[in-house]
């Protein structure tokens, strides 16, 4: 391309009238290594565009998949924490049973479907679930017995 063509394209460029095709021509011209003195001042700009385009992320298939695997594990830990938190509070005092567990305010609580594939992890989860179940079971049966007792005493008063 001759200088007048480039001049024309550059003017169009500054006026935001160039098409993507024309912008590509400009980029090609400035990367050709044969830039006329007249346009030298804009070389750094197109040089910058080209340099930036060569930046790449380190993410690849295997690093991405292992990141997702890690994320899944932490989901289970969050769920475990939620159950444990509730169960632990129940162990201290039933009256504060449903008080919120120390789970980090749910903000990070990730959600997904997860099938446990590690026996140790499965054992931990099962124990937590059993603790949760039995504490609630005990609490509920006590409450029901107490309520039944109240009904009986009310009838006696009649």
């Amino acid at each position: 391309m001759n200088n007048s063509e480039i001049r024309h394209l550059l003017n169009k460029y500054w006026e935001t009238e160039t098409s993507l095709e024309e912008e590509k021509l400009l980029k090609q011209y400035f990367s050709s290594g044969n830039v006329s003195e007249e346009f030298q001042e804009y070389s750094p700009l197109f040089d910058f565009y080209a340099t930036e385009l060569s930046r790449t992320s380190e993410l690849n298939e295997s690093s991405g998949i292992s990141l997702l695997e890690k994320q899944k594990k932490s989901n289970v830990i969050h769920l475990r924490k939620a159950i444990i938190g509730v169960a632990a509070a129940g162990l201290i005092a039933f009256s504060v049973f449903w008080m919120k567990s120390e789970v980090d305010s749910g903000a990070q609580f990730a959600n997904t479907y997860h099938e446990v594939e590690d026996p140790e992890e499965a054992l931990k989860i099962t124990k937590d679930a059993l603790a949760f179940l039995s504490i609630n079971f005990d609490k509920s049966s006590k409450k029901i017995n107490k309520d039944l007792g109240n009904i009986k005493s009310a009838q006696i008063f009649k």
Partner: peptide, 27 residues
């Protein structure tokens, strides 16, 4: 699947990276 997700993202991961870099200014 995880692999499918990766296949969807990988073609433009550099574009995302450069856009993020433009704003935060570090790799």
């Amino acid at each position: 699947q995880d692999k499918e997700i990766m296949n969807l993202i990988l073609p433009f991961k550099d574009k995302l990276y450069r856009f993020a870099y433009r704003i935060v200014g570090n790799s």
